[in-house]
Structures are given as structure tokens and as C-alpha cells.
Amino acid sequence: MKETLTGLVAVAGAAFMLIASVGILRMPDFYLRMQAAAKAGTLGILCIVVATGATLGSLSALLHAFLASLFFLLTTPIAAHLLGRAAYLSGIRPRVLEDELAGRYHPATHALGSDRAPDAPETRSAGAS
């Protein structure tokens, strides 16, 4: 009974990761791909971690599983945030209805204004488009 249950959790997690992978292939622009990959992927790997911990069953396995879930919950947002920002700065334009971030970055310093592009000391305006 317990084995079937953990097996089902593992299969559900794997299915979520498969969907994330298909999403990464199918989505039309970078930001949508990232949404599909990062989120469904996290849920999938968490399911698999839980299933592994439950299957092994020993205390150190459960501790491993707990630490691993904590690790994934902490690192996924950081990686997603950094990549999203870097991609936007490198000039990948999102396919969106409306982009309220457009033109708010100072081109040289990357300072970000809250309602318009910030004034910054005169520097060469090279780099980001």
C-alpha cells in the first residue's frame, strides 16, 4: 500500500517534469519557457525527493530528503530571478500584451527606476538596447 502510494507520487513528479520539458520546447518566447520549466520542474523534483525519502525510509534518508527540498525551494527562485533579469538586460524582448519594464533601465548603470528611467551621471550609453 505504502509502496504504491510513494510510487504514484514519483510518477506524478516525473510527469510534471516531462510536461515542463515539453513546455520548454513548445512555448513561444524565453520568459514563457522559463515559467514552464522552473515551476513545473520544481514541483516535479520535490515529488521525487519525497518519494525517494519515503522509499528509503531511514532517518538519514528522511533528513536528506528534507534538506534537499529546502535546497530546491531556496535555489530555484534565485536562479530564475537572476536568469530573467540577465535575459531582459541582454535584450531579449518578451512577447507580451504590455511591457511596463521597457525603457526603465538606465542603459549604462542598469539602475532601475520605479516610474521612468532614472537620471544618472553622464556616461557612455553603450551596451543594452
Binding site: 517534469m17 520548454i24 524565453f30 519557457r33 523534483i45 521525487i48 525517494t52 528509503l56 535575459a87 531579449i92
Partner: peptide
């Protein structure tokens, strides 16, 4: 683009992590 490849590679790494976890189980 490069970021597209990076997220795909990141997902592949997660997949391999999942495979290893299940192999361990």
C-alpha cells in the same frame, strides 16, 4: 539565444538529479 539554452540545460540537470534520486530509491 544563450539564456534559452541555459534554462534547457538547467532543466536537464534537474532531470538527471531526479533520475539519480529514483535510482537511489
Amino acid at each position: 539565444t544563450v539564456p534559452d539554452r541555459v534554462i534547457a540545460l538547467d532543466l536537464m540537470a534537474s532531470l538527471v538529479v531526479g533520475l539519480l534520486l529514483l535510482l537511489g530509491a
